[in-house]
Amino acid sequence: MPEREQIKKTAPARQDAEEVAETPATSEKGEALKAELDDLLDEIDDVLETNAEEFVKSYVQKGGE
């Protein structure tokens, strides 16, 4: 998926360096959270439903309760 790779390359991984929080602890935590999120996005590409539109369209439930 070239599109994804391209976006990944330009993904602003350090973007929040400018808006760093007040304390080093928070910014470290923020960085860690962000890195974790990037990894997660890479990982879930393999498990996401392949045809999103069709999947969403076909998910129809009867009301309950």
Binding site: Y59, V60, Q61, G64
Partner: peptide
Amino acid sequence: SDGKGNSYGCH
């Protein structure tokens, strides 16, 4: 919810 106006509960 199914995103189409049908809801079912968690009571």
